[in-house]
Design a protein around this nucleic acid. Structure first.
Lengths: 212, 212
DNA sequence: TTAAAAATATTAACAGTGTTAATTATCTTT
DNA sequence: AAAGATAATTAACACTGTTAATATTTTTAA
């Protein structure tokens, strides 16, 4: 291994070290409470050393967001084998909601926080959220398959996909932000907390089945 | 006017002064960039003086959120006279989306940020988001009216209401967070930006019409 | 092997943040 | 006018992200 390769490896190793420290902290204490200084302490280096491996904090946040993206994509990819497209669509929706609940930190990073999108915007006007695109692509493909099987005939695929995403994102984000909990009209007990996502999702599914 | 009344008035005047300074800053520079120190400078007082009138920053954020709530409620209230309940439902949905676009700062304060809900949670476990409740109540009432007119027969009113809210919130929040913009699959031009909200909303409306 | 050069890491520092304690100024009451 | 209560301020703490200057280590060249 040449010296140059060693350097690159060292650089990559450190990037990973920093990132996993960041992830550990942000899982344990939340994304807001995760500072550069705490990450540095976790890795055992000086705070400024981090800037040799990441441009700034947004860069770290973006890198973390990429990890979340690939995790979600992996989970959804496992469902792409489901034969019947409408069943697959339902499975994807459920998986998305599960991801929101079980990986709430990642979910906020991917779909709620502005930072990752701002990072892309800073990178240039025409920059694209490729990792998000890949995930969304699976939804589009599934809905296209549905249409070929006679579902949603004559409807615009893109609008349909965006609407499906909006629906699950809407309920997931209201849930995670704590808004549902504080709404008296929904006076739900601890037990039925997660059930609320399920019920709303099921209603949407039944609406999709009706319009067929 | 007694001395005690004068004191109360002075206190209330100052609370309003601080709040409108906060609102001005957060409209001009965004909510993130609005600090206690900047608010104080805007009012022309010392930063610590603010703590004589508001418990902490979260308290100010919550007060600001209340103003946003009443603004949204006012706008929606103006639609409650629409006779046909389904037409009213559509009008409410449009008004909600308009609020999200035209009062994006308030929208984030009301439905995206965790702080106001955290403020309630800190106030006690059984605390309720009354102002939000009042807005949501209008949606529930409208959907109930729809059901009495033969729409959505046999469906759960609460779930239906929550699902309607989720749908519009989903598209609004994805739009405001910048996620839609960076999605290549949606490659939308500047002109069609707002159109995306409209299209997705219309699709939902047509779905509601279909299930009738 | 040693001296120069380059890469890497650290400390010090800046300009901010929210917030509290101690101190000063102002107003109210006796 | 003096005493007491209220209001407002300054000073300070413990943080934040980030940059410049300095020190250390590693690599290259003589």
């Amino acid at each position: 291994m040449s010296v140059q390769d060693k350097k690159l490896k060292h650089k990559e190793d450190f990037r990973i070290k920093i990132l996993s420290a960041a992830k550990k902290l942000f899982v344990e204490e939340g994304i807001e409470a995760t500072s550069i200084r705490k990450i540095a302490k976790e890795v055992g280096i000086s705070p400024t050393t981090i800037y040799l491996y990441y441009k700034d904090k947004q860069d770290i946040v973006y890198a973390l967001h990429l990890e979340g993206c690939s995790l979600l994509r992996t989970q959804m990819q496992a469902l792409m084998h489901v034969d019947h497209p409408f069943e697959r669509l339902k499975a994807i929706g459920k998986a998305y909601l599960s991801f929101a609940v079980n990986e709430s930190g990642y979910y906020e990073l991917l779909f709620v926080m502005k930072e990752p999108m701002q990072f892309l915007a800073d990178r240039g006007e025409g920059s694209v959220w490729e990792e998000g695109d890949r995930v969304f692509e699976m939804l589009i493909a599934t809905i296209k398959d549905c249409q070929q099987e006679g579902f949603f005939v004559g409807m615009d695929t893109q609008t349909l996909s965006l609407q499906a995403w909006s629906t699950v994102h809407g309920i997931a984000s209201l849930f995670l932000s704590g808004h549902l909990e504080k709404l008296n009209n929904l006076l739900f007990s601890e037990a039925s907390k997660a059930e609320f996502l399920e019920r709303t999702f099921q209603l949407y599914v039944s609406m999709l089945e009706t319009i067929k």
